[in-house]
Design a protein around this nucleic acid. Structure first.
Lengths: 111, 111
DNA sequence: GCATAACACCTAGTATCACTATGCACAATA
DNA sequence: TATTGTGCATAGTGATACTAGGTGTTATGC
């Protein structure tokens, strides 16, 4: 059964923060942005993204604000909070640690 | 509240296969081996390891065999199967892909 | 001698979380 | 006109790593 990639689990929060930290951005655009930047690797579904955004907002790492477009439609723009910045820095460190540990085990493609 | 590291999810199978592929080894020793090789980063609990081993065995990626030690005690040694070798190769590739994608997003520690 | 840690296996229950599927609403395109 | 794209949202599901507990033996510390 092996899902496509269980590795992704636990990485979403970091990915979202990485995108949001660069500019206020709304949900739908985040999906597009992550797909573009990862050269098509990350293709999150709305069912994955929105709950994650709500989680992050509830945790105080990001803050969302509704904005009304000229045509009357609404978008919810997220920006990162002070706390979010700290957590993002920590998460980058965690990623490096994890990466290092994984490579110590998985790399040895002795051959 | 942000578990220590959700990134680990999805990586266990690969880690186990990486260790088992090098030598027949038993559960308890796998924990020690992963901790040693990762310089203390990976410290899996039995409650994580044994179900994972059973899962891999059920999937046909590894095979376990009970061995009786001179003192009469028993250990279950696991070795990798042909299918396990293939999956391991695939998982190594998946790891590289994931790694690449993650770095494209997370790396930009501009500054 | 006795208690604690280490060895070595196991399971049940829980929480998390990314997924599928679905819904609403409007705009643009085919 | 029908489909695709934009933009938000939730309910339900499945996978999985965790906590917490259990069994029994051996080695170490006090």
């Amino acid at each position: 059964m092996a899902k496509k990639n269980e590795l992704i689990k636990g990485s979403i929060d970091s990915l979202l923060l990485c995108v949001i930290v660069q500019q206020p951005i709304y949900g739908y655009q985040i999906i597009k942005e992550l797909e573009k930047r990862s050269q098509g690797y990350f293709k999150f579904k709305e069912g994955t993204l929105y709950p994650a955004l709500h989680r992050l907002e509830k945790a105080g790492l990001i803050r969302g604000e509704w904005q009304t477009l000229p045509n009357g439609r609404q978008r919810r723009y997220y920006h990162i909070t002070e706390n979010g910045l700290n957590i993002l820095a920590a998460k980058r460190g965690q990623w490096l640690d994890f990466l290092t540990a994984m490579n110590l085990i998985i790399q040895p493609v002795p051959k």
